[in-house]
């Protein structure tokens, strides 16, 4: 298999850096033990500083792709590189932060304790741990709940704790699996804005899974549209909305055009599934 006949190879628009791809996925397939083809021949480059969203129907392999990048599973075939290293090396170097689709908080730790956990594991000095946890909780608007236990929080609040936890050790690369899926529309739009500001100010690279077309368009520099069974990358849509983006961005004509383009790509994916 050569690169020429892999679908939708898009090179990243290097807006802010001239680095080679930070994340490089080459002809990656993933077949689970039960025979489910979760990902077929996926090829994707993500440049440093990009914000790439994965969008596609349930079961098209979005989580699978993130897990492969994070070295939580190994691809059946193909290669993945993160800053020129294997995912395993990147993981050992603590190169990324990962927000799971489910909050996965530790019941026995308070909200603050949960945010402190990765910092303790990584051996940050005590004063710095506390300071970072405080800042991260402020960022997600949960300072007042620092001493609550997870069961005392709503689902959306729990998810915000898990975001604060992933950001606490300040990784340059972020994997976020539907982080705002459980939030109400207004909180979601606010956190979208916060995340975008954080991304712009820190130059992080984000790979973001969502089911929301407006969210994908609003946040991303590129949108990867996927199709299910087997999971494939259908198209990659560059988003040329100017930065910095604000609430008004959502009302521009270009925003609607891009949203329509993503929707049509998703439709094509579904049609493909029906014919099957």
């Amino acid at each position: 298999m050569t690169l020429a006949d892999t679908p939708a190879v898009a090179s990243a628009p290097r807006e802010r850096t001239g680095d080679p791809a930070l994340v490089s996925v080459r002809a990656v397939s993933m077949v689970y033990a039960d025979g489910t083809v979760a990902l077929e021949n996926a090829t994707l480059d993500v440049g440093a500083g990009e914000f790439v969203s994965l969008i596609g129907p349930s079961g098209c392999g979005k989580t699978t792709l993130l897990r492969l990048l994070a070295d939580l599973a190994e691809p059946t075939s193909g290669t993945i590189a993160i800053a020129g290293r294997s995912p395993a090396e990147a993981r050992r170097a603590r190169a990324y932060g990962y927000v799971f689709q489910a909050p996965t908080l530790m019941d026995w730790r308070t909200v603050r304790g949960n945010v402190l956990l990765p910092l303790e594991v990584m051996g940050f000095p005590k004063a710095e741990r506390e300071e970072r946890a405080r800042r991260m909780l402020a960022l997600v608007g949960l300072e007042r709940f620092a001493d609550h236990y997870p069961w005392q929080l709503s689902g959306g609040m729990q998810q915000r704790v898990s975001i604060a936890r992933a950001l606490a050790f300040d990784p340059q690369l972020l994997f976020m699996d539907e982080p705002f899926g459980a939030l109400d529309e207004i909180t979601r739009e606010n956190l979208n804005l916060e995340l975008l500001r954080l991304w712009r100010e820190t130059g992080k690279t984000v790979i973001f899974v969502t089911h929301s077309i407006p969210e994908a368009v609003f946040l991303s520099t590129r949108i990867v549209v996927m199709t299910p069974r087997p999971g494939k990358i259908e198209t990659v849509i560059p988003v040329d909305l100017p930065q910095p983006r604000s609430f008004e961005t959502r009302e521009t004509r270009r925003f609607f055009e891009l949203a329509t383009e993503v929707r049509e790509a998703l439709r094509r994916g579904h049609g493909f599934e029906v014919e099957d």
């Binding site: 603590r94 990324y96 932060g97 799971f100 996965t104 594991v121 990584m122």
Partner: peptide
């Protein structure tokens, strides 16, 4: 502990 909690610790290279 469930799979995900263990995975999470793994992402921090615990």
């Amino acid at each position: 502990p469930d799979r995900l909690a263990l995975d999470l610790m793994k992402t921090w290279n615990a």
